[in-house]
Design a protein around this nucleic acid. Structure first.
Lengths: 226, 226
DNA sequence: TATAAAATAGTAGTAATACTATCATTTTAT
DNA sequence: ATAAAATGATAGTATTACTACTATTTTATA
């Protein structure tokens, strides 16, 4: 028996539930590949509609605008990553091990391929998150959007990481800032490594394993410092 | 005798040198206050032109598009911050002290007010950098823009910080990644503290001094770890 | 099965944005 | 004094972001 994981998304993120119809699902999956190839700025609802063989108006019936659509995709991603964290650290008591699992998840070190079982092409999704995810909150609407709980999955994920840090060292006073730092840096160092390599120490072997090792070093140095 | 600091900007950032005419300077200063109030997405050349009492076409003679204009402003900022770093650490031999100066600069802990002497309202400039600066490179044009050296001031600033880290501890292998991390985090933690406080540990006393202390803790934990 | 209501999709717009081409005027250089 | 260069305004176009309205399909119930 197979289980289809279906995240419960915040209703304010959409006008009509995209995961409840074939067209809606097509909107989501094609958005990811279009945003991947065009970048978010050049991505438009017209291009998306052409891509799925529907009209712009149809897309607008699902999402208020392209920013909300990106927010939906990004929220889905953090929701999924938070589930991975919960699943992979379940029953593990050693907090050091938990932290290693966290940095592996953040830097996309998964054992098996997961492409088949999810709505999205997860590798494509990971790629667009790196460059586009922060644009979701770096706007004048942060406050209103935050009140509507649009960033909840991201905040939950960071909070769960912070709690592991606290469990590892209850005296550490920057657990929440350290959590948001490593989550952001997992993406930024990856982006820098690929696009602006001189900003990193990974210009020779451009591997996410390097980013993971850097994050581990940051975390354990901070948590183990007396 | 007063000195007017005039940064030498990359020629690819503009079509016509904005600092060489009154209209050009007005474009720059009014852009900062408009981007501050509207956010970069809602900022347009039409609104800017209205604001300075000129037409859109005039603005287009100075800058190719609004993205290039933002890039100019952001490059100016890092150029300026890099100068502050150089000036304030000049003749200082103690690397620990140098690092403290770096984090003070990054978190806007200046002794005197500097508003009067510069083209820009520096406090406004600092505010827009926090939310908008990363948008300059988070695009599909990173590679081409980087080849045109548009991010040079940012990269120089990070490289100079990394060099201080190396001087402090020559054995530390992540000096460049740590440098870009603290530079980005100075902005991000400030943004989070203001807009999404649960992602930080500074929700009670929302002060940039907290961010500075966090950055110092990150840096010295990493550099002092054996 | 018939038919009304609801849901869904398409057509055809508008206002704003991001530019561009052309013409007019002012400044500067000789 | 006059030509050349620089600057600015006018008036466009193509695209984007979005909306109002109409047509069609689906579903619910009599």
């Amino acid at each position: 028996m197979e289980w289809q994981l279906h995240p419960k998304m915040n209703k304010k993120l959409y006008l009509k539930d995209p995961e409840g119809s074939e067209i809606g699902k097509k909107i989501l999956t094609h958005s990811v590949s279009l945003i991947k190839s065009l970048g978010f700025e050049l991505f438009t609802f017209r291009k998306l509609a052409e891509d799925i063989g529907k009209t712009e108006a149809t897309v607008y019936r699902y999402f208020e605008n392209k920013h909300r659509l990106l927010n939906y995709i990004v929220a889905w991603y953090w929701h999924w990553l938070d589930y991975q964290l919960m699943f992979n650290t379940n029953n593990i008591l050693d907090n050091r091990l938990k932290i290693n699992i966290i940095t592996n998840i953040l830097t996309w070190q998964f054992e098996e391929k997961h492409a088949a079982d999810y709505l999205f092409n997860m590798d494509d999704l990971h790629i667009i998150i790196m460059a586009e995810s922060s644009k979701v909150y770096l706007t004048k609407n942060v406050f209103a959007d935050n009140e509507d709980q649009l960033f909840k999955p991201y905040k939950n994920f960071c909070a769960n990481i912070a709690n592991v840090f606290i469990a590892y060292n209850p005296d550490y006073i920057y657990s929440r800032s350290l959590a948001s730092t490593i989550v952001e840096m997992a993406n930024f160092q990856d982006f820098f490594m690929t696009n602006l390599p001189s900003l990193t120490d990974f210009s020779e072997t451009k591997s996410l394993k390097n980013v993971r090792d850097f994050l581990n070093s940051l975390i354990f140095s901070s948590l183990d410092a007396k």
